[in-house]
Design a protein around this nucleic acid. Structure first.
Lengths: 140, 140
DNA sequence: CAGCATCCCTTGAGATACTG
DNA sequence: CAGTATCTCAAGGGATGCTG
C-alpha cells in the first residue's frame, strides 16, 4: 500500500520539519535561554563567579534540583565552567566561560527591550482581555 | 505554633521570589519568545504580512492548534495584529504591530549569536558527554 | 479558509529524603 | 557544602474530528 492519507502526509511533513527545526540554531538557543532559570543564572554570573550556595540564595525561587539542572546544562553547553576545590567542606565555583560572556550582551539586549516595553504589553493584554470578555458576553 | 521548619521557610522564600520573578520583565519576555514556535512566527512576519494558511505552510512543523495558540498569544501581547476580511471564504491576515517590529532587531541579535556560536556549543557538548561517559565507566 | 473542541501522552518542575 | 535520587503533579504539545 503506497497510498497515504492526508493525515499521514501531514505527519510526515511535520516530522521532517521538526528534524530541521531541532537543527535550527536559533531554536536551540531559545530552548536553552528560554528555560526558566537560565536568564537569572546568567545575569548573576555576568557579575562575577559565584559559589553554589551563593547562587542558591540569590536565586531563591529555584528549587535545588532546578538550580543544579540549569547549571549542568549550561556547563554542558560550554557557557559556564564549574571548578571544584577539594577541601573540607568542598568549594564549588561557577563562572562564565568566554563563550558565556559573549552571550551576555545579547541577554542584555533582550532585557532592555523587555524593560522598556513590558508596559505596552500589559496595556495590550488588558485591552485584548476586555474585548474578549465583551465578545463572550455578547454570545451568551 | 509559630515555629516553622526550615522546609517551610524555604518554601515561603521561593513563593515570594516566584511572585517577583513572574513580574520580572525579562522572564516574562523570555517566557513568550521562548515558546516553541514564536521565533519562527516572528521571523516569518518580519518579512511582511501573512495569511493563516501561508504561515501554516511555512511553519509546517507546528500543529494547527499550536500555530493558532501562538498567534493568539502574540496578538494578546500586542506584538501582532489580526485582520479579518469578511468574504467567502474568509481571509485572515497577520502582521507585526510597531511594537512587534521593535522586537525584530532583538530577535535578530539572538539569531546571529546562535548561528555564530552553535558550533562551539556542539563541541562543548561532545566534550562534556565524552567525559561524562568516562566518569560513568570508571565508577562501575 | 481559518479555525475550535477534545482526548491523550510526554515533559517540566517542585517536594522530600538521603549522601560524599 | 554541594549535591543525588525518587515521587508526584500540572502544563505543554500533538492527533483527530468538527464548524461558521
Amino acid at each position: 500500500m503506497t497510498t497515504r492519507t492526508a493525515a499521514q502526509r501531514h505527519a510526515e511533513a511535520r516530522a521532517s520539519h521538526r528534524a530541521r527545526s531541532a537543527d535550527c540554531p536559533t531554536n536551540r538557543l531559545l530552548d536553552r535561554i528560554g528555560e526558566k532559570w537560565v536568564a537569572l543564572v546568567l545575569k548573576e554570573l555576568a557579575e562575577g563567579p559565584r559559589r553554589y550556595g551563593e547562587l542558591a540564595r540569590t536565586i531563591a525561587g529555584a528549587s535545588q534540583k532546578m538550580l543544579t539542572q540549569t547549571l549542568r546544562r549550561l556547563e554542558r553547553d560550554g557557557l559556564l565552567a564549574r571548578t571544584v576545590t577539594p577541601a573540607v567542606p568542598v568549594r564549588v565555583e561557577y563562572a562564565l566561560t568566554p563563550l558565556g560572556q559573549s552571550l551576555v550582551p545579547v541577554m542584555r539586549a533582550v532585557t532592555r527591550w523587555a524593560e522598556e516595553n513590558i508596559d505596552r504589553i500589559d496595556v495590550a493584554r488588558e485591552t485584548y482581555d476586555a474585548h474578549d470578555a465583551e465578545r463572550r458576553s455578547q454570545r451568551s
